[in-house]
Design a binder for these strands. Structure first.
Lengths: 218, 218
DNA sequence: TAGATTGTTAATCGATTAACAATC
DNA sequence: TAGATTGTTAATCGATTAACAATC
């Protein structure tokens, strides 16, 4: 069986193109070229065409791509032509901010449950939704058919929460904790620990300086 | 001039190893092997050794790595052996959560300024720090010598905020907005838009299903 | 010495890019 | 037809992995 392997970077870029196209659409631009998309998103035109070619032929030679058409095609590829139900575990500062984040709803993500273990937090209202005790996790996930789990608990609790979510039926996890989850391989996990990103920044700040000094010595 | 190019993925992994080592240290484990690190962080042992080899020889053949020593070496490589000053622009839900996030301080990141444009938000206190009007951005960045800018404003304002931060002296940006920043090439930017990550999840949920169906047809 | 594990090289794998035929 | 831009191939580039000599 021939399995075509699509680079993960391609998917990330498709999401970026998608945002660019939505902006272009709003501005009334009806046709875009790979060069324009490339320009607006900081990649190469060849990269744009290659990324799109994994999924079909969306353009017209000599003309370019129809903005709205390409936009909706990419949204379909990314699975954004439907709603997704997600639960958040951990209603601390980050979890609460995410529960109230309008950007989710506008892109089709519905938060159908927020959980915490702290009795001081359980019962709080975050917009429409009430924070429930984590003991109700399994029940709510099953009843609301949540497919995505968002983990915003401390590192020490992340593994257990991940396991419970998966056992309850969740198939994809967004992990904000710094703990690397060890789960069945068919579970889709993305780590978005942002202090990790901060550390890449500081490395580059320090290393950039070293490179500059080395260059000057020569 | 020979410039050794270090993969960005290597830096991300170093940060992950760093967390693993800190945990191991706390548990009183004094020696770790590349296989143990690999196991605990989900990469291959060869990868671990290769990543470390970019920066020096930290282990002892036949023995492994001294946990504390390797841990502090990696922290030094990542630039975490010193404090870094950062400002946050945008004190909405996400910006506020980040300003109050204890994880930053514990890893040496100090938030020295939080800004917003909304008069309803300016003047609020987030822990020790008061939200200032964005007009004071340049002044505070210069006075407090902030080196890192964290952007948590809506997409429409991100580019302008990025430009102002850089002009004020910030050299590295953590961009939480979905807008791709277009700045001088020596500015270090990392995009941590998490709806992007959510979309990679949904793609994989949909695509995994397609792959499975294709496999079953055969 | 025998067993273990590193550091490093060479081979492999995968992703990006350049180039161009196809075609509007 | 001339100009433009796609879709695709082949070449290049870079990152990962396997293998093993070095060495504790």
């Amino acid at each position: 069986m021939k399995t075509l392997k699509i680079p993960e970077a391609t998917i990330m870029r498709l999401a970026v193109y998608s945002r660019y196209l939505e902006r272009a659409e709003k501005q009334g631009i009806t046709t875009v070229s790979s060069a324009a998309i490339a320009d607006g998103t900081g990649v190469s035109p060849a990269q744009v065409r290659k990324d799109l070619a994994y999924f079909g032929e969306f353009g017209t030679r000599g003309v370019g791509y129809h903005t709205g058409e390409l936009s909706s095609n990419i949204r379909r590829i990314l699975g954004l032509n439907r709603c997704w139900s997600a639960v958040i575990v951990g209603a601390g500062k980050l979890g609460s901010a995410l529960a109230l984040y309008e950007g989710f709803l506008s892109r089709g993500f519905r938060i159908v449950g927020v959980f915490d273990i702290d009795p001081k937090i359980v019962g709080k209202h975050l917009g429409e939704i009430e924070v429930l005790h984590v003991s109700q996790l399994e029940d709510v996930v099953a009843r609301k058919k949540a497919e995505i789990g968002i983990i915003t608990v401390p590192a020490s609790a992340a593994q257990e929460v991940g396991e419970r979510l998966v056992k309850a039926g969740v198939r994809a996890l967004l992990n904000f904790s710094p703990h690397v989850l060890n789960l069945a391989r068919d579970v889709i996990v993305r780590n978005v620990d942002f202090s990790l990103h901060l550390e890449v920044l500081t490395f580059n700040l320090v290393f950039g300086k070293i490179k500059k000094e080395v260059a000057e010595e020569k």
